[in-house]
């Protein structure tokens, strides 16, 4: 009789132990995903915008899940510190120049933090280190500025086009312009600048084009960052715009060039030009605009160079150049 009870109790014990074990294993497996049971160290990164990142989201390093987001703190209106718990064994692989970005996991996936190895040599990160960050929103901002500049350039060129057209048609007056030698020099210089920048634009465009290709085939570092299809599309559009406007700039520059040459050779219909002060003023303003525009454009290009998105590429370019020089 007592035997029967003890068998029952044994079976019950087995049942309870197995069930509890199952719960524990399940908890362990779930917790493992959240890195509760492995040794962790923490790194953080500052973002302007975390795009809906939540505590518990995955942290990936080169595509491997290595940890989770531990804490998201708002320091001030533009600074959000994202603290991440990362497996200790990954520490040696993450270098100080690694870059943290926020991305999403697939079409309907949750947000995650991507840590991307930086270019070049660096020592491994330490516990509590702050990684360099790249906010997707800043790339968007950059693209926006680029697009605005582009619009400016387009406006500018259309202005120039109009002026030069009227000039070549001999309708306008450029008296003031012609009296002012400094102005003429300026114009020449501006045109040179314009030419230079347009060359640069087309060069950059080529670069960007290559970059885009790389992005699409996912080969470069930036490829991963750009794999967000929407911004890639946007970038592409801008590039097309830039391309067309650079052609226009080029054309304008050629026009101007031709025209200036004509002035110098004294072949143009100068009388007509000198009488029209309005046009002269307009031209002057246009010149200023051009200057301003190219300056802005240069700035933008500089920004592009420094921006994370393309920096790697420019660096690579530099390296190759160096190599070529050495050879």
């Amino acid at each position: 009789m007592a035997n029967k009870t003890s068998i029952q109790n044994m079976k019950l014990g087995l049942f309870v132990v197995l069930g509890t074990l199952l719960v524990l294993v399940a908890s362990y497996l779930i917790g493992n995903r959240q890195n509760m049971f492995v040794q962790n160290f923490s790194v953080n990164a500052v973002f302007k915008n975390v795009n809906g990142l939540q505590v518990g989201n995955n942290v990936r390093f080169s595509g491997i899940n290595i940890g989770t987001v531990d804490k998201i703190d708002m320091l001030n209106d533009t600074t959000i510190v994202v603290q991440m718990k990362v497996e200790k064994k990954m520490r040696e692989h993450i270098r100080k120049n690694a870059i943290a970005t926020i991305g999403s996991d697939g079409l309907v996936g949750s947000m995650l933090v991507n840590i991307v190895p930086g270019v070049g040599e660096a020592v491994s990160v330490e516990d509590g280190d702050r990684l360099e960050s790249y906010s997707r929103i800043s790339s968007q901002n950059m693209l926006n500025t680029l697009s605005v500049t582009n619009e400016n350039a387009a406006l500018l060129t259309s202005d120039l086009l109009r002026v030069t057209q009227s000039l070549t048609e001999g309708k306008g007056t450029l008296g003031k312009l012609l009296n002012d030698t400094k102005m003429a020099d300026d114009l020449e210089q501006t045109i040179i600048n314009l030419k230079y920048s347009s060359e640069k634009v087309s060069q950059t465009l080529d670069d960007l084009q290559i970059l885009m290709k790389g992005a699409q085939s996912d080969q470069t570092i930036t490829g991963m960052l750009l794999s967000d299809s929407i911004s890639a599309q946007k970038l592409k559009n801008i590039l097309i715009n830039l391309d067309s406007s650079s052609i226009e700039i080029n054309r304008t520059a050629q026009n101007l060039n031709q025209w200036v040459g004509e002035i110098k050779n004294g072949q143009g219909a100068l009388q007509l030009v000198t009488q029209d002060t309005v046009l002269a003023n307009q031209l002057m303003r246009t010149m200023q605009n051009i200057e301003e525009g190219t300056e802005k454009f240069n700035e933008n290009m500089e920004a592009l160079k420094h921006n994370f998105l393309t920096r790697g590429y420019f660096r690579k370019l530099e390296k190759e150049q160096k190599k070529a020089n050495e050879n």
Binding site: L29, I30, Q34
Partner: peptide, 10 residues
């Protein structure tokens, strides 16, 4: 399965 699950489910 365990990737999809969280303690919030269990």
């Amino acid at each position: 399965v365990f990737e999809a699950l969280s303690f919030g489910d269990l």
